[in-house]
């Protein structure tokens, strides 16, 4: 009786995840081993490792760009985000205002990329600044820095919240104690604050990395041809535009594997304990 009730309570969520996430993912894993459109052919699907061979032979640069963009965005977030989180948690009273304004990037990478491309456009508001540095608009508009910057703005709040949560669990008197024992601010930071917030930093970084792996609008709207090779975009082109289901499924599986590995470690570091 009690078991039946538990099962009934869990069923909707479990079915949703099973039928619409795990089954489809299993489906594309299967699909990734079929040759182009052979899945549709009357003779039945032709299974081969062709797609994965293509990954190694032709699409490694795409994987490299994808990981490179995500890693750079993560680094920018980490460097800018730690001081931000620290000041937010320790020094600021108008925290709710900051949190409210921080939601803007969350509304979507699309709007961020759209807005940024407008800023960098020739004749746009950033013109004087760009020219002052002796650059041309095109140096920035379709470039790696623009893509990374947009990606890091989009994921910045996640990083800040993850570090901020860890920080707010650290008793401020520990820092005061360190200061009273004669530690300089950087020593306090390096030897007290950072070790105590490491879990939050690692979890936040991995989370940002995992989310950035699937970046779509930023490379599309702000990147050069190089950045547009990112896997999510290539997957869309091969799969939806060119209907090469096998190849695009393979890319999906590769993306998924990277995301899962990253997520596994992220969850281990952060929130696994939520339901215990």
């Amino acid at each position: 009786m009690a078991r039946l009730r538990t099962a009934a309570f869990l069923a909707p969520a479990a079915l949703l995840a099973l039928l619409l996430l795990y089954a489809p993912l299993a489906f594309i894993v299967n699909m990734s081993f079929t040759v182009t459109n052979s899945f549709l052919s009357p003779g039945g699907p032709v299974y081969s490792l062709e797609n994965y061979a293509a990954m190694v032979q032709r699409y490694l640069p795409n994987l490299f760009v994808t990981v490179q963009l995500a890693a750079l965005a993560m680094l920018v977030d980490l460097v800018l985000g730690f001081p931000f989180a620290y000041i937010l948690v320790r020094r600021i009273r108008y925290r709710d205002l900051v949190r409210a304004l921080m939601v803007f990037p969350m509304f979507g990478a699309l709007y961020v990329a759209f807005g940024m491309s407008f800023i960098l456009l020739p004749g746009g508001p950033a013109d004087p600044l760009i020219h002052a540095f002796g650059l041309r608009n095109t140096d920035l508009l379709f470039s790696l820095p623009a893509v990374v910057f947009a990606m890091s703005i989009f994921t910045f709040p996640f990083m800040v919240m993850s570090i901020g949560t860890a920080l707010s669990n650290v008793d401020p008197t520990l820092e005061e104690a360190a200061a009273c024992l004669g530690a300089r601010p950087w020593q306090t930071f390096w030897r007290v604050v950072l070790p105590l917030t490491r879990a939050g930093v690692v979890a936040g970084s991995l989370m940002v990395f995992g989310w950035s792996i699937g970046a779509f609008a930023e490379p599309l709207l702000l990147g050069s041809l190089n950045e547009q090779r990112s896997l999510a975009l290539t997957l869309y082109k091969r799969g939806v535009v060119e209907n090469d289901y096998g190849l695009s499924s393979m890319m999906g599986v590769v993306l998924l594997s990277v995301a899962f590995v990253v997520t596994y470690f992220s969850l281990r570091y952060s929130r696994g304990a939520l339901v215990d």
Partner: peptide, 22 residues
């Protein structure tokens, strides 16, 4: 709980493609 949280971490393009095909 982790299995139910996982959809958050699957890239949108992968969810999109897998659902499109299924």
């Amino acid at each position: 709980f982790s299995l139910l949280q996982l959809p958050l971490y699957v890239p949108g393009a992968v969810i999109g493609l897998s659902l499109l095909l299924t």
